[in-house]
Every structure is written in C-alpha cells, then in structure tokens.
C-alpha cells in the first residue's frame, strides 16, 4: 500500500479547517500534545502539522488566488528518514507512512533541515519533532465506522478538497483523480518522489472585463433608459 492525500487546488477555499481539525485530533493523539507558545499572547505560535499558504498566481487581470494546504507528503525517497541518526524517523514498509518515534527523537532538527516542504516542526515544549501521521490512529481504528477511518483533515474539509487513499491501487479514487486531473508533485526536481499529489486549478471561463462603450452605444443606452422611464 502507498497511502497518501490528493489536494485539489481548484476547490480549496483556504478556510484552515483542515489545520484546525488536525491540531484538535493530534494534540490528544499518539504524538501529542502539540504544544503552543503564548497561545493568548501577542505572538502566538505552536506546533501544527498542517499549514495553509495563499498565493497569487499570474498577473492581473488574469490572476488567480490559490490556497495551498501542506502537510507531510510521505515521500517515497524520504531524506528525513535517511538523515535521522537515532532511528526515530522511519517509513513504514506496509503503507509508506513516515512517522517519528517520540521516545527516540533527540531533537537535533536534521530531519526538518532535510525536508523541502516544511512538514516537520520541533515541539517547543517536548523537544521532539512532530509531523503528520496521516492520522494513523484513525485510519486503522476498527472501532470507528468505516466512513470515518480517514485522516481528520479529509473528513473535515467542507469543499472535499482533500482525498485520502491508496496510490498503489490503480482503481482507488486518489489514483483515478490524479490521472484524470493531472496531479502534480511539489518540487519534483529534488527527487524526493512525494506521495501526496496536488490537482491544478481547472481552467474556467475568463471573467468578462468592463467594456468601454463607443459614443453611439452610449447614446443608444441613454435613450433606451429614458424611454423605459
């Protein structure tokens, strides 16, 4: 199995619900708690496993606002695992999920340095590295109804911009949608072969720009307006 996410950049509205649901679930999950620093102070910060950034793509008037949620991409060639000196970071053979064993991590930050996607954050209070677990404590939990055995971010997304599934199965939703929509890798040139795929925005109809009328049409419009009164 090769478990991962598909993220649809066409429909994501940047509401941060995925990040909030992720924090809520994982702060009391297997790697929790996810510490906050000054949560009610002037400079609140903390450990988050999901970050959503917003970009403007293209130039006005043909520009587009794109929201880009990012969590661990569970790379096939995960350098974070290779560089880890303690063996705390590992990639599971059975499903490709990359995890950090909180009991082994010594907080040297080298895995965060090796990650191009900013997916790993050092927990300021525990001194260990935290990252997306793909909600491993949800997806295999047989006490949950089958429909809920998905990562918290996927269940909560109000626009269904996140899909979870097995990329090794060519008939899974994630494989099909990746093929159909041309799912892309982030920074493919580094060769990390990330599992998570990003679907490009659909090319919709261009919004009509304001037209400048000729003198004749302006007069006609004015006459029509006067007559209709």
């Amino acid at each position: 199995m090769k478990l991962g996410l598909v993220i649809d950049l066409d429909t994501c509205v940047g509401c941060h619900a995925c990040a909030t649901a992720c924090k809520q679930w994982n702060t009391s999950g297997t790697i929790g708690p996810l510490a906050d620093v000054e949560p009610y102070g002037k400079q609140p910060s903390g450990t988050w496993l999901n970050r959503i950034r917003t970009y403007e793509v293209g130039d006005t008037p043909a520009s587009k606002t794109v929201h880009m949620p990012m969590s661990c991409l569970h790379c096939e060639d995960a350098a974070c695992v290779t560089v880890c000196p303690t063996g705390a970071s590992y990639k599971r053979d059975e499903d490709g999920i990359v995890l950090v064993d909180q009991d082994k991590c010594m907080g040297c930050n080298l895995c965060a340095w090796a990650c191009p996607y900013g997916a790993r954050e050092l927990d300021a209070e525990q001194g260990t590295m935290k990252k997306c677990t793909l909600c491993i404590d949800r997806i295999y939990d047989e006490h949950l109804p089958a429909a809920e055995r998905q990562p918290a971010c996927v269940i909560t997304c109000p626009t269904h911009s996140r899909l979870f599934g097995d990329f090794d199965d060519p008939d899974s939703t994630v494989s099909q949608v990746t093929r159909a929509r041309g799912g892309r890798d982030l920074m493919p040139e580094l060769g990390y072969r990330p599992t998570n795929k990003y679907l490009p925005p659909r090319s919709g109809k261009a919004v009509a720009a304001v037209k400048k009328n000729s003198l004749l049409t302006s007069v006609k419009d004015w006459v029509n307006k006067v007559i209709s009164r």
Binding site: L9, H16, A19, E38, K42, Q43, P44, S45, G46, T47, W48, R51, I52, R53, T54, Y55, E56, V57, G58, D59, T65, V66, M68, A112, P116, G118, E121, L122, A124, R184, D185, L186, M187, P188, E189, Y198, P200
Partner: peptide, 25 residues
C-alpha cells in the same frame, strides 16, 4: 517558487503565510 507550488508557467507571489507570528519554520 514556481516548482515549489507547481505553477511553472506564471508568476507566483505569496499573499499570506497563514499565521501571524513566526513559527518554527
């Protein structure tokens, strides 16, 4: 920033990093 965001045929600018105070990254 183009290869990072997959938009290799357009200019890309950051509008919002998603948090107000600086985090670990």
């Amino acid at each position: 920033i183009q290869t990072a965001t997959t938009f290799t045929r357009a200019r890309v600018r950051l509008l919002d990093q998603g948090h107000t105070a600086d985090g670990f990254l």
